[in-house]
Simulated assay, not measured.
Amino acid sequence: MVAASSHPQTSLAVVSGGASGIGKAIAEQLAAAGKKVIIADVTTPQEESEAEYFPCNVTNPEDIAALFAHISQNYGKPDILVCCAGQGIQEKLTEGDPAKWQQVLDLNIMGTLRLIRAFTPGMLEQGSGDVVIISSVAAGQAFAYGGVYAASKSALNVIAETLRLETLPTIRVITIAPGVTDTNFFENTISGYNTVESIGYGALSAADVAETVLFALQQPRHVSLNHLTVRPTPQPF
């Protein structure tokens, strides 16, 4: 194994949930912009990519430790951390399954927290870094059957702002809140029956969201776009 110091990288990005959907689009655009990209996901990418895949369940402490060791030993410290791994759920609070709620909260909240805990100390040590957290317009938006998912995304907004306060001026924290996006998100939603068509507001593409991420990252270091909402124009919330 080669020491990290022998592998200087102009910019290294870690993208959780980067095998599909919004995460995949972000990974592709970061790679196209010349970044070295590590995709951390439970799912193996279905297509060849310039990004490197590392199997990782972000809810598993051992997987996070293995990811951290792999990156540290081979590449050093990441410059960009994109926390995109997540899952939706639609269940009534009075009728749903708390075990399923726990699964979503572990992934959406604790998965993000574990990644932050693993990689932001190195960013602070090297004197710069960017953390991108994929939230949702559902954050702070109460709606029937959506309480658990909305709560998880609301928590991410608070976590992102807390991280910004704790790490400024070294780390820029960027929260992206997409509206309806045409990915496999709805197919993977637990107990959910919505589709892009049934929602009826049109949809963004994953590339639309990724371009927003790249726009925020490409700003001068003294400029922080801390919270960006991107949604289909007809979407009311």
Rank of each mutant, 00 (worst) to 15 (best):
M1L: 10
M1G: 14
V2H: 12
A3D: 12
S5A: 12
S6Y: 10
P8H: 02
Q9C: 11
S11D: 03
A13P: 05
S16M: 09
S16H: 09
S16G: 09
G18L: 08
K24D: 09
I26C: 02
A32S: 14
A32Q: 13
G34V: 01
I39C: 05
A40F: 03
D41M: 10
D41Y: 10
P45S: 08
E47P: 01
A51Y: 04
E52S: 12
Y53I: 05
C56L: 10
C56H: 07
T59M: 10
N60K: 13
N60L: 09
A65R: 13
A65S: 12
A66M: 07
A69Y: 03
A69V: 03
A69K: 15
A69E: 14
H70P: 01
I71W: 03
Q73H: 07
N74I: 00
G76T: 00
D79C: 00
V82F: 10
C84D: 15
A85P: 11
G86A: 10
Q87T: 13
I89V: 14
L93T: 13
G96S: 04
P98W: 06
P98L: 08
A99P: 00
K100A: 13
W101M: 12
V104S: 10
L105F: 11
L105M: 15
L105C: 12
L105I: 15
D106V: 06
L107E: 08
N108G: 06
N108Y: 08
M110S: 12
M110W: 13
T112P: 03
T112Y: 01
I116Q: 02
I116Y: 04
T120L: 01
P121I: 02
L124A: 05
E125T: 10
G127H: 02
S128W: 11
D130N: 15
D130W: 06
D130G: 00
D130H: 14
V131Y: 03
V132N: 07
I133F: 02
A138V: 08
G140Q: 07
A142I: 04
F143N: 10
A144L: 09
A144N: 09
G146N: 03
K153S: 07
S154I: 02
V158E: 04
I159L: 13
A160T: 03
A160L: 02
E161C: 00
T162V: 12
L163N: 06
R164V: 01
L165C: 13
L165N: 13
E166G: 04
T167H: 01
T170C: 07
I174L: 12
T175G: 08
I176N: 08
G179N: 11
G179L: 11
V180F: 09
T181Q: 07
D182N: 15
F185Y: 11
F186Y: 14
E187R: 13
N188L: 12
N188A: 14
T189V: 15
T189K: 06
I190E: 03
Y193G: 15
N194C: 06
E197W: 00
S198D: 05
A207S: 14
A207C: 01
D208T: 06
V209H: 01
V209D: 00
V209P: 01
A210M: 06
A210C: 05
E211L: 08
E211H: 07
T212F: 01
T212C: 11
A216L: 10
Q219M: 11
P220V: 01
R221A: 14
R221D: 13
H222N: 14
V223R: 03
V223F: 08
L225N: 10
L228G: 00
T229Q: 11
V230F: 06
R231H: 13
T233F: 12
P234D: 03
Q235E: 15
Q235F: 07
